[in-house]
Design a protein around this nucleic acid. Structure first.
Lengths: 223, 223
DNA sequence: GACCTTATCGCATTGAATGCAATTTTGCAA
DNA sequence: TTGCAAAATTGCATTCAATGCGATAAGGTC
């Protein structure tokens, strides 16, 4: 039934309890007003123990980061034979976006609000995003060795994510009063559409004359 | 000679002393190893006073943020009649990049290293970058009301900055041992070149058939 | 059941950051 | 110049995140 040892199961349960206690408290009292001690107490562990589960208070809000990155990498690995870099990235983006477990979406909504309002959380989120970009770029470059080097792959992924992030930022500042998660998701979808339209054009142009439209850029010699 | 009141001049001098003391200590002992108390002591002020000059330890590393943003806004405002959004952004990027006062460049080099190595600093840098993006997008949309709405402007600027950031990230991880600031600057230049090549193509295509290549995207009605 | 590994916990400590109130410095006007 | 109001500096206390350490308990293995 469960492949984990009892110890690991217990650990997972405590971890989950911490996340749930934290989300409740954050929603009720706000992020800054909730101390780590409060969270630990609500989850029935010692304050010190909290830091053996999460390296910092912010990290609690991003529990499934690895999974999301893994999904993106997977999407790249399972590319079709006629997909170019842009198509693969688009598909990866959509697949990662459809991540909505029932209860995980509550955390996602909370996180979205905190990312916009709490500087420390935003900072951490951007950092995670940047690291993920770098990793995705690595895989993308490896997947298209004849069309992309590391440098232009990083530029492409950065442009991609930057466009979506920028558009999303605007969409969400209008949606202040939208607690409806469906509306938020629609905003995400629309933001990506707007942000990525130029690439769709580029991509189709690429199919017509690949070598001019997306020629690989040579790596500089590090002299 | 000096337009500031004596009080303001003194304040500026203290501020400068704090920055200089901090850079020295950061270079010598490292960021985490240097406490705010150390910096304050080196600048001959009380620890408490530090926080009346900078809201946090990280902020010390980004003293001229407003000026840089202002330069970008200025670059947008002073656009030529035949420049499109992409050209304006390119020019803004270059003008902001040529910011190198003699001693400010020392701080810039230090900052670059710390952004790459100290998580807290990187987080703050990304935050500042994102805020600047948003503001630039606002101005860009205002400058081209018939070609860009807020949403697509934000997407464009995000893509732009994202591309450069992504490329830069790769360039700089190869350049670990380059303490030569000239090499770093060359890396920056090359990174922007690579990152922005697609837009140059887009931009020239745009001049040939503007309406197809960069049609404005309608703002969604927030129903 | 003996033994090793891993979790948990309490305690102390560091360091960033904030609030408050006392004191000094500066700007300005009578 | 003198005196007054505004602003800056400072010390002190406090909160809170985060880390290190050592003791104790619980889980897994033979």
């Amino acid at each position: 039934m469960s492949r984990m040892s009892l110890r690991d199961r217990k650990r997972a349960r405590t971890r989950q309890a911490l996340v749930e206690a934290a989300t409740e408290l954050f929603e009720r009292d706000g992020y800054d007003e909730t101390t780590v001690a409060d969270i630990a107490a609500a989850a029935d562990v010692a304050t010190r123990t909290f830091f053996s589960y999460f390296p910092s208070k912010e990290e609690l809000l991003f529990p499934e980061t690895d999974a999301r990155l893994g999904a993106a990498v997977e999407a790249i690995a399972s590319r079709g034979p006629d997909e170019g870099p842009v198509e693969v990235l688009l598909r990866a983006l959509h697949e990662v976006g459809d991540d909505n477990d029932d209860m995980a979406s509550q955390l996602a909504a909370l996180r979205l609000r905190l990312v916009r309002t709490v500087p420390a959380v935003r900072g951490r989120a951007l950092q995670i995003q940047l690291d993920a970009q770098r990793e995705i770029a690595r895989h993308l470059a490896a997947a298209f060795p004849d069309r992309l080097d590391e440098l232009s792959a990083a530029a492409l992924v950065g442009a991609f994510v930057g466009a979506v992030t920028g558009a999303l930022q605007v969409m969400l500042e209008d949606a202040d009063r939208l607690n409806d998660p469906g509306a938020v998701q629609a905003a995400v979808r629309r933001a990506t559409d707007v942000a990525l339209t130029p690439w769709l054009r580029m991509s189709s142009a690429l199919q017509q004359s690949p070598r001019r439209a997306c020629a690989p850029v040579r790596r500089p010699t590090a002299s």
